[in-house]
Nucleic acid binder design. Structure first.
Lengths: 341, 341
DNA sequence: CCGCGCACTTGGATCGATCAATGCGGGCCA
DNA sequence: TGGCCCGCATTGATCGATCCAAGTGCGCGG
């Protein structure tokens, strides 16, 4: 704590001299402490402490051909939507990765230029050890490209339709989450529960939807006429709810996102219906919006902290012993129950 | 530990051999292209292209003693609040920094351990070139500590009460934003405009509050009895609004955050008052919540994209020529007008 | 007393880009 | 023709940690 910069930081050789041992021994003290006798180790650690030594990252990276950096393409929440899972996820990730000795490197790729360019540069420059890929939507070329490049990566999201995929992945069981929400409503006596989701080409959307049909059919209830597929915007949710209310008279809505659920709430407000009393509404993502509105929006909450833990675990396996083939991990969301459902 | 490549990545020497020039020339082609004759440069670039060469980051970092990495302590939005500026800010930052050849390195420091430990490690290990500090609240030791360490950093936020501070900073003029909001209400005929803000020891809160008093006094209107200071939670805003409505009968509220504004909206709802019609409400941060609720919440929007640009500019000045002393930059927010005000 | 293994030491090489100094050929001017 | 500068090539050294191979001193069991 008494060192002033910008004097040259101490090197491993400085520590060795101070502790009266060799460079090799200091290196071992740091990387293979169990090779040293207890008293020697203590002496070296003391010298490290006194000098405020910390191994130079660049030198270490050069020699070991690894950076202990994980690349993550940062995708912010879209304006005008309620979905903000990234924020919570990134935080959990940074914390967990930090515990494992890794840091998160953010990068962006411009909209116009080649989307893979960013990955390529970082990879070739050995700037990162691995990537975390977050959007595995249909036709997303990232995963295929990374695999072909033999770049280590873990994806948050299943390789939906890519049967050649053999990379580790972690995902949240959206169907189970929606099933949970639907069952919660069924247990409260609802029979006519509507679904508002995304277009058919969204695998995530179809997965979530299947949780609704599963729960409904499990109670021998029909789902015909009770589903709507639309864009992920508030106004789309608003319109879809209006149509469903007119044509199918549902007593509750389960939505693929909090954004859509907000649209439903607006429709209820238009018609003087009280959410949670006249009509129940459940969203998906447990966004800040769900938490601060009144009445509070019941919503499916993804276990993002666990996702981060599993992703880091997978990364460690991937980077330490390449033989370990970690399959996918599927986590189950919970339901944050509030007033609307 | 190692990135599995089909083949070892090409080195600068490989490029030199292929182009029939020396290592130094290739290095110049990359770092000082104007030193080369046009045809030589073209030949080298061709070789780079053919081999898919990208300079090894670790080697470059070691030699140049710089990593082109900027450290940022990632702070997620608090659960149960509406404030989510970080998300938007980080994205802008990543994009802008990327354009300048820098990447953003996220790190976290555990709540219990020494808050400065994270900075220290990264700095000593020459893992980052500089830091971006985002919370410059009263008594925050980071800035002082970093300065004492002579660590290059730029802060998002003024050094409020630290007169010894000489580091570059970028901030948003909260007072101007609130002035803007208040004036907007005044222009619409409001006279009794209340303020709900944070406790007195929050410099940011007091700054924003001053915008309200400035605008009110500018029209010779009294502010006595119209202000409330509380915690930044929805329920605090709710309570404060109730008290103010009872005791001062304001026709409009300006709040230090969207979170507080949400509380106000809940109170209006309790009393059957229509936001924007009976009583106007303006928040601060233009969060997702402000955007998706109905009626939409008018809110002060921070120009986070510009903040990012200015911060990167300051960083570049800081890292290129240490002599350049960039003072602070103060940016003016805008008002996102919606139905509540 | 020998041999073995533990706990180190020693010196050198290595990773790959950059720095610094020198070499070299050709053009320009006196 | 000689001297000089300019553009570019060449080459060894350097950054600091790690890897590697060989060696030393010492204690202990056989």
């Amino acid at each position: 704590m008494t060192i002033r910069y910008p004097v040259a930081p101490p090197t491993l050789a400085d520590v060795a001299e101070r502790a009266g041992v060799s460079r090799q021994t200091v290196s071992n003290a740091i990387n293979n402490p169990d090779l040293l006798r207890a008293d020697t180790l203590a002496r070296v650690q003391e010298a490290i402490e006194e000098l405020g030594y910390s191994p130079n990252r660049a030198a270490r990276n050069l020699r070991t051909r690894s950076s202990h950096l994980i690349g993550l393409k940062f995708q912010p929440a879209q304006e005008g939507t309620a979905n903000a899972a990234m924020d919570r996820f990134v935080h959990s990730l940074v914390e967990t990765a930090g515990g494992a000795g890794y840091h998160i490197l953010l990068f962006a790729v411009g909209e116009d230029e080649d989307h893979l360019r960013g990955y390529d540069d970082l990879l070739r420059a050995t700037a990162v050890d691995a990537f975390i890929v977050t959007d595995t939507y249909l036709g997303n070329p990232q995963a295929a490209w990374l695999r072909q490049r033999r770049a280590p990566f873990v994806s948050f999201g299943r390789p939906w339709d890519d049967d050649a995929a053999d990379h580790p992945w972690v995902d949240v069981d959206g169907a189970a989450g929606v099933d949970l929400a639907t069952t919660h409503l069924l247990d409260r006596g609802h029979q006519r529960i509507a679904w508002i989701g995304w277009h058919k080409d969204s695998r995530i959307g179809e997965d979530r939807r299947s949780g609704w049909t599963r729960a409904m059919h499990g109670r021998n209830l029909s789902t015909t006429g009770l589903a709507s597929r639309t864009e992920d915007t508030v106004s789309s949710g608003h319109d879809a709810a209006a149509v469903l209310l007119d044509e199918a008279q549902p007593s509750a809505f389960v939505c693929a996102s909090d954004t859509l659920a907000m649209g439903v709430l607006h429709t209820l407000r238009d018609r003087g219906l009280t959410p949670g009393h006249d009509v129940s509404v459940i969203g998906f993502d447990d966004s800040q919006v769900a938490q601060v509105i009144n009445p509070g929006l019941t919503s499916v909450r993804q276990p993002l902290e666990e996702v981060a833990v599993e992703i880091v675990r997978a990364l460690e396996g991937l980077l330490s012993t390449p033989a370990v083939v970690s399959p996918g991990v599927l986590l189950t969301p919970t339901l944050a129950v509030r007033e609307t459902g």
